[in-house]
Simulated scan of single mutants.
Amino acid sequence: MKTRFIWLFGLLAVFMTMTGFVQPNIEDHAHILNKETKTLIKEKNNRYLQTKEQPQITVITVKKLKNLTPKSLNRSKRTVFIVVGQKGKKRNVQIFSSKDLHGAFTADARSNILRAEVDQLRSYNNATFNKGLRFVFRACATKVDQQYQYALDKFDLSQSEQNKISHPHRVALPIALALAFLIMGIIYMLRRFGHHSSNLRK
């Protein structure tokens, strides 16, 4: 009987491991996530369960704006947390990673991901916000896939989307150059007009 119990316990442990009985990938305490976002989270994490490393990207929503650090962060491995804090209409999105992923998720990398679709993440419209959140999730998934050298799939960012993160100021550069040329043109015209006026006085 004792041997049978040990055997059943071992079989249950193997089953739990094989079926991905691990930390849940979705904790929607603030009831923000829509069906499309939840489907993306589940399907991508199910793919990760088929890999040797079995990384995770967990999305958590909470009813507060501050102190969003997940309680399980320090004891987690190969895990990225996307935490959404909500209070009233205000929302705060932050990205955390376990220590073994700090190289991929530096402060700059996390900041660039959140800035890439900042207008959507600031939207009060839940569908628009979820669209921005899916971008953040896909950006994190792309980082994880690159870290472990997985083949990119349909859930990852396209090259043009990756460029938005790699070069967040690229869009602002043409505007800055145009303004610089405009200012130079105005200065040139003012100087020319002033020089012409002085010649007329003579």
Rank of each mutant, 00 (worst) to 15 (best):
D108N: 09
L157P: 13
K164R: 14
S111W: 08
L173Q: 08
A104N: 01
R134D: 13
R138H: 05
A104D: 02
L101E: 08
Y150I: 00
Y150W: 05
V171R: 12
C140T: 03
E161C: 01
N130V: 09
L101F: 09
T128N: 07
R115H: 12
A139D: 03
K164Q: 12
A141P: 09
A139V: 09
D100L: 10
Q146M: 11
Q120H: 14
L114C: 10
A127S: 15
D100I: 11
Q120I: 02
Q149V: 02
L152T: 05
K131L: 09
N163T: 10
D119K: 15
V136N: 04
A107I: 12
F135Q: 00
D156N: 15
Q162G: 12
S160W: 02
Y148V: 10
Q147E: 11
G103N: 15
P168L: 01
F105Q: 08
Q159H: 06
L173W: 08
R110T: 07
A127G: 13
I175T: 12
E161F: 01
P174R: 14
L133S: 10
T128C: 02
R110A: 08
F105L: 03
N126M: 06
A107E: 14
E161S: 05
D145K: 00
S123G: 11
A127H: 15
R110V: 09
R170M: 11
D100P: 09
F129S: 01
A178Y: 07
N163F: 01
N112G: 07
D145W: 00
F137R: 05
S160P: 08
H102W: 10
V171L: 08
L173I: 15
L101T: 07
T128F: 00
L121A: 04
C140A: 08
R170I: 09
D108H: 08
S123R: 11
R138T: 05
N125M: 07
S166Q: 13
A151K: 14
L133E: 02
P168T: 03
V136A: 06
V118I: 11
A127E: 15
F129Q: 06
Y124K: 15
D119M: 12
T128Q: 15
D153G: 13
R115D: 11
K154M: 12
N126C: 01
Q159N: 09
L121H: 04
S123W: 03
K131C: 00
S111F: 14
R170N: 00
E117N: 07
A107C: 01
A107P: 06
A172H: 12
Y124E: 06
Q147W: 05
